[in-house]
Structure formats: structure tokens, C-alpha cells
Design a protein around this nucleic acid. Structure first.
Length: 721
DNA sequence: CATAGCCGCCTTTTT
DNA sequence: GGCGGCTATG
């Protein structure tokens, strides 16, 4: 094996990066801005720990997504070798811990992991069991409330005993029932994985010590997005040695709605008073114009620690803000701009090309606030024959045919999984209808056995007639046959179940469904090759934790479409951010308080700082929302990008895209007196003619000089009044 | 018991 | 605009 000398390996690190890498013992906080090489630092740190004699087996690194874990593993191996180090997400780590200490955690190791639609069906049942109306207690809301409680490590019993008002008392009842439904089925939801692990560690000092021995060094990336449960788990894991290294950026905290608590990172130094703090403020990614814009935006957040964005690259950014008529035109405009960037022979389009094309599609991404916005983009890219990928991993596993097939597999591993059983009992149709299922169900309740056991004993159920009994017997027999083949590789088993269950036959005329199943089988084969010891249980628990961002394939030469949330941690040469409209970004549903608005601002900040050189922000005057064409209002964030640019030449630097001026927008000459709605009277210093995107530099009587985009500013000539 | 068709409900972001 | 669930019908 070739081994790079340590000197060359660490040579390229800046002094602060080196400090973060080589500061070995004790608590360490890496406060890292975007593009500062944070992940690289963590990776180097893993290698440095190993170089200094730490056994890789004693290192645990936690990343935000599985994808990030894979990449970190690969990079660490490229630098030296990290074989044996545990690198995974919080959730995957919890699955491993819970499987290992299942009895102490009060669960069975073959648990099913319930995703949100599984959770929804359990919650619905819970609300019904409590004899409550699902209109007054919508399952989705209840799930939200329960999730919040779990993330705060408040279990059903404690919440119930503290509840004093009607709503809390009712919620407590629902929470308790929901938890018992889950445990009857040996199922854990995403939040349970964290909560159960946190409680396990809290209640068992032996487990804590054992894991403290195992993981002598803990590294956590994206620490700003950890929730309370994760925080407690981290604290417990390092309680015996305090070798915790947390890295993150408070300005990139975008998961508050999911329980992420920004205080975890802000209070790190209080939690570990002897912590070393390393700031990484240099940015190696973006052109300075982009950083200036990002900084101007994020500076408006009140609840924030001041941090610099120090550019290291020379200026040469291409920044454009464009208005489009509607989302179709926006998508078309983006597609054409992509052609300009990538195809040297392309000269068409509404936008004037910045420079000759020739860039790779893989270096370009389009971000948006909500998934539904991908549709118009897809259509435009198909029209323009531009290859793209939609980064949405969970979508695949949510397809009906995939979920049906996986439900068969889940039953084999965990027969108590009622959600899975009910899904497949009559899929494909085998004559076991609702009436039959209800009868078996009452039998199960009456005899206090699982639904699956009741099906096994269907012969004894008096309310069932001969025909359904025979059909049930055939179904149970089929599952028993499958069970014999459970051990070993997963892909052949899936193939077998697909055929024998009758699923293949039932979807044989649906090409896309068949294709999806084939994809599932090849992905499973991939798992079989990679896993040390392929096992169905492990496979199912792994794919349950598959995330949207995990679907991103950096190696394929296609433009990536993704939500702003999924963009975290990535970087691209050219970035498009679509739909900068009030109500979309910031989203209308996050307008209840200032904290939420600040989070939306951070989300935009994350999007902007993904761009290395090209940043194309756009909005549409009209957008179809839920089938309704609506007039839009430009996002207030658009006004926040340039206000700090008063002394620079342009708000829009190197802007090459010019939209034809709209009727009604007129030119201003230097020296003219103008009035602005909020800034009052001023005198025009300069007019930068960019058609509809024209900018007026005005020195106001307040003494401030502002660059204002004409189309946003309600600017009037003083003699017009 | 299966199927089609209709109605009403939700609809931000996701491990 | 999309899906789950309910109902009417075969």
C-alpha cells in the first residue's frame, strides 16, 4: 500500500485548519463558515488521530447524511487508511447501538423502522383507539407534536403526568396509545431511534462506559443541526473522556422545524468550559462577489454570532437576478442558460451568454424551496434535451410497488409488523378482503395475540367461512416458505419473493413499476457485495434511513435539481436558485415568528454559498400553486442582497444578463432629486442601465448611499409628485 | 369481494 | 393538483 508522507498530506492545510486537525485531546469546537473546508478538516483529523497512534476502531465520526458518511470514508481512505473507524449518521449509529443493547433498551433487535407514512397509519389508529375524531385531532399534527416531544426526550408517561390542560391531556393519551401501537408491532419511528438510545445511555452506566471505551474520540459534523436528543447522546458517549470534536456553522442551521437546537453549538463552550475553539473563516469555494452578497444577507439576522467570510479567490463571479413571467418561462430560462454554459455552439435564448460554453452539466445545480417546483424544471429540461437528476432519494422507496415488495420482506424479519402485514395481506388481490381481515383482527384482540398469529390460527376462527380460511392458509404457508430462504444474500430473496408472491404478475404490464423493482434488486445486489455479512434485517434497517440527499450522484454528468435543504454540504460551479417569491422563500408556513424568518434567510444563505462562480437567482411574476395561477410578490430577501454594496460599483456584479426594460420603468440621470418610500429624499449619484434590472445609486438625505434595484424600489422623481 | 369513480383533505423543508 | 378513502356497482 502506498502511504503518503505526513508532511505532504497535511501541507495544504491553513494554520487554523492544522490546529483543528492536530488538537487531539479534549473538547474541540470547529466554527466553520461555508466553503472553509470543514469536512476536509474532519477527515484529516480522523487520519491525524490514527497517525498519532489512535486505533481506528476507537474513532466515531457522525455525519449528517449517509452520503456524507460514504464520502468521508472514501476520502479518509485516500489520505491514508481509516479502516475500522465508525463513520455514519446519528440514526445509523443509534440503530447499531439499539440492536446491540436491545434488551437493555427494552426492545427486540429485529425492530422495524417506521417512516412517515407508516407512522401516519399508526397515529391514525391511535387517534381512533382514543375514540377521538381525526378532524379535531389530525394525525399529521399529532405526529408533529409527538415528534417534538421525542426530540426533547419527553416520553409519553412523563408528558402525561405533567399535562394539565385539555389539549395536553388528550395529546398525552394519544402519545401513550401511539407508543403502545408501535411497541406491539416491534416498530420504532425515526425519533424513537434517538430517544431510545438517549434513554439507554442515560439509564445504563455500563453501556455508557462500554461505548466510551469503544469510541474514545467522537467527531460530529453539522453540529448546528443536532437536536436535543442527539446532544444528550453525544454528551453521554463522551462522558468518560470529553474527546468530542463538534464542527458546524450556526448560520447554516436549517432544521429548527425538525427539532434542531442551535443552542447546542452556541453553548458548546458552556458545556465544555475547557473547549478549544477554532474558527475557519476563509472561504475557498466562492468568488468574493458571491460571498459579499451572502454576507449582506446573513448579517440581517439578529440572533447571530458575528462571523467573517474571507474570500481567497479572485473576483470573477457571474451574478444575475432575473424576473420571469411564470414558472414555465423561469424553467425555460434556466434550461437555456444551462445550454449557454455547457454547449459552446448554443447562441439562442433570452439571456445573453456570459462566455462561451463548455462547462460540465455536473457542475450545475438548481435549488428550490419546495419539491413541487421540480416539475416545471423537468419539463423544460426534457424539452431542451438536457440531462438532469432529481435529488430525492425517499421518493423511490415510497413507490407503491417498492413498498409492497419491501412489506413482504419486513414481515419475514418482524412478523409483528402489522403495518406491513395489512399492506400485503391482499396485495396482489387474493380474495382476503376487509371483512375477513376485520374478523381476524377481532380474534387477535380477543385472544391478545398479534395479527400474524391470528392469521396462523385462522382455522380456529368461527366467524370465518371455508373459502377465506383456505385463502389465509395459503398466504401463511407462502410466508413460511419465504422464511426458509431469509438467511444470506438479499437480492436473490427479493427476486424470489417478487415472483412467488404474485407481485410480478400483478404489475407485469406496468413497465415503469417493473423497472423500479429491477432497480431495487440491483441496489440490493450492491448491498450484498458491500456488506460484510449481508442480512435481510440489516438491509431493511439501512434502507429505512436512506435520505433525499443520499440520492445525489456526483459522478453522473447531469444537472442536479434539489431542495435548498438537500443542498447542504454540496458545492457547484454554477447555482440557480428559483422561486425567490414572498411566500415561497421565505415560505408562508414559516412566517409565524422572527426565528422562522431568520431560518428561511439562512436557507437562502446556504443556497447562495453553494455557488463557486455563477449564481442565477430568479423569480416569476405568476406562479401556479395547487392548480391556481397566482400573482406573486418578489421575496423580501431580494432587497437584502445589495444594501451593503453601496460603495461597490454594482449590486449585480459582472451581470451579463439583461431583460428588456418593462414599459413604465424609466431612466434616471445623475443629479436628479428622488423620493424613496422608506429612505425619503435623495439625489441620484449614478444610474446603471440594465434594462429591467437597472440600478440607481442614490445618496439620501440621511447621509446613506444606497444602490437600489429600480424595479423593486418605489422611487419617484421629485418633480413627478 | 373487486373495481371504478368520486369526494374531500392536505399541501415545506426530512432523518 | 394529488392521494387516500369511501361508496356504489358489478
Amino acid at each position: 500500500m502506498t502511504h503518503k508522507s505526513q508532511a505532504t498530506r497535511y501541507d495544504q492545510l491553513t494554520p487554523s485548519q492544522r490546529k483543528a486537525v492536530f488538537h487531539i485531546e479534549g473538547p474541540l469546537l470547529v466554527l466553520a463558515g461555508p466553503g472553509s473546508g470543514k469536512t476536509r478538516v474532519i477527515t484529516h483529523r480522523i487520519v491525524a488521530l490514527i497517525d498519532s497512534g489512535v486505533n481506528p476502531h476507537n474513532i466515531c465520526a457522525i455525519t449528517f447524511t449517509n452520503k456524507a458518511a460514504d464520502e468521508m470514508r472514501q476520502r479518509a481512505n485516500a489520505l491514508g487508511s481509516s479502516a475500522g473507524a465508525h463513520i455514519s449518521t446519528f440514526h445509523s449509529l443509534c440503530v447499531r447501538i439499539l440492536r446491540r443493547y436491545a434488551d437493555k433498551a427494552g426492545i427486540k433487535p429485529n425492530f422495524s423502522i417506521y417512516n412517515d407514512s407508516d407512522q401516519a397509519s399508526c397515529m391514525k389508529q391511535a387517534v381512533k383507539d382514543c375514540e377521538l375524531d381525526t378532524t379535531n385531532f389530525p394525525p399529521a399534527r399529532m405526529l408533529d407534536a409527538v415528534s417534538t416531544l421525542k426530540n426533547k426526550l419527553i416520553d409519553a408517561e412523563h408528558f402525561g403526568s405533567d399535562a394539565d390542560d385539555f389539549f395536553s391531556k388528550t395529546l398525552a393519551k394519544i402519545y401513550i396509545r401511539y407508543q403502545s401501537i408501535l411497541s406491539e408491532q416491534n416498530g420504532l419511528d425515526f425519533d424513537d431511534l434517538l430517544m431510545k438510545t438517549a434513554f439507554l445511555l442515560k439509564g445504563h452506566s455500563d453501556v455508557r462506559n462500554e461505548l466510551g471505551e469503544r469510541f474514545k474520540f467522537l467527531l460530529i459534523d453539522e453540529y448546528q443541526d443536532t437536536n436535543h436528543a442527539q446532544y444528550e447522546i453525544a454528551k453521554a458517549l463522551v462522558s468518560s473522556h470529553s474527546n468530542i470534536c463538534a464542527a458546524g456553522d450556526p448560520d447554516q442551521s436549517i432544521y429548527r422545524w425538525r427539532g434542531a437546537d442551535i443552542r447546542n453549538i452556541l453553548n458548546f463552550e458552556k458545556d465544555w468550559p475547557d473547549a478549544t475553539v477554532v474558527k475557519l473563516e476563509e472561504n475557498f469555494r466562492s468568488r468574493p462577489e458571491i460571498l459579499q452578497m451572502a454576507d449582506s444577507l446573513i448579517s440581517l439576522n439578529q440572533n447571530r454570532k458575528q462571523k467573517k467570510l474571507i474570500p481567497t479567490r479572485p473576483p470573477a463571479a457571474d451574478i444575475v437576478i432575473t424576473e420571469f413571467e411564470d414558472e414555465q418561462e423561469e424553467a425555460e430560462g434556466i434550461a437555456q442558460k444551462v445550454r449557454q454554459l455547457t454547449d459552446p455552439s448554443f447562441r439562442g435564448g433570452k439571456l445573453v451568454p456570459a462566455k462561451a460554453g463548455g462547462k460540465s452539466l455536473r457542475d450545475i445545480a438548481v435549488f428550490y424551496r419546495v419539491n413541487s417546483m421540480s416539475r416545471a424544471l423537468e419539463e423544460a429540461f426534457i424539452r431542451n434535451k438536457i440531462p438532469y437528476q432529481i435529488v430525492r432519494g425517499t421518493e423511490f422507496y415510497n413507490r407503491k410497488e417498492i413498498r409492497d415488495l419491501l412489506a413482504y420482506l419486513k414481515i419475514l424479519v418482524n412478523p409483528s409488523d402489522e403495518v406491513a402485514l395489512l399492506r400485503i395481506i391482499n396485495t396482489p388481490a387474493r380474495g382476503i378482503g376487509k371483512t375477513t381481515v376485520d374478523r381476524v383482527r377481532s380474534y387477535a384482540v380477543l385472544n391478545n395475540i398479534t395479527l400474524f398469529d391470528a392469521f396462523k390460527k385462522a382455522g380456529d376462527i368461527e366467524s370465518l367461512s371455508k373459502a377465506p380460511k383456505a385463502k389465509i392458509a395459503a398466504f401463511v404457508e407462502m410466508l413460511e416458505r419465504f422464511k426458509k430462504d431469509v438467511a444470506g444474500k438479499v437480492a436473490p430473496l427479493i427476486e424470489h419473493v417478487f415472483t412467488e408472491s404474485g407481485l410480478r404478475k400483478s404489475i407485469q404490464s406496468d413497465d415503469s413499476a417493473l423497472e423500479n423493482v429491477n432497480e431495487l434488486i440491483s441496489a440490493a445486489a450492491q448491498y450484498d457485495r458491500q456488506a460484510e455479512e449481508p442480512a435481510l434485517l440489516d438491509y431493511l434497517q439501512q434502507i429505512a434511513l436512506f435520505s433525499d440527499a443520499d440520492a445525489y450522484d456526483a459522478s453522473s454528468d447531469r444537472v442536479a435539481f434539489m431542495t435548498l435543504h438537500a443542498a447542504k454540504g454540496l458545492e457547484f460551479e454554477d447555482v440557480f436558485i428559483a422561486g425567490l417569491e414572498d411566500g415561497l422563500l421565505p415560505h408562508e408556513r414559516s412566517n409565524t415568528d422572527d426565528d422562522e424568518t431568520e431560518e428561511e434567510r439562512r436557507l437562502f444563505f446556504v443556497g447562495i454559498t453553494r455557488a463557486k462562480a455563477g449564481l442565477y437567482i430568479s423569480y416569476a411574476r405568476y406562479r401556479t400553486v395547487r392548480g391556481q395561477l397566482q400573482r406573486t410578490i418578489p421575496s423580501p430577501f431580494l432587497f437584502e442582497l445589495g444594501t451593503e454594496f453601496t460603495e461597490s460599483d454594482n449590486v449585480i456584479s459582472s451581470a451579463t444578463s439583461v431583460i428588456p426594460a418593462q414599459a413604465g420603468i424609466h431612466c434616471f440621470a445623475a443629479g436628479e432629486l428622488v423620493r424613496h418610500k422608506s429612505f425619503g429624499l435623495g439625489r441620484v449619484k449614478e444610474f446603471i442601465d440594465m434594462g429591467e434590472d437597472s440600478i440607481v445609486k442614490v445618496r439620501f438625505n440621511t447621509g446613506q448611499t444606497k444602490s437600489i434595484m429600480l424595479k423593486y424600489a418605489n422611487l419617484s422623481r421629485i418633480n413627478d409628485i
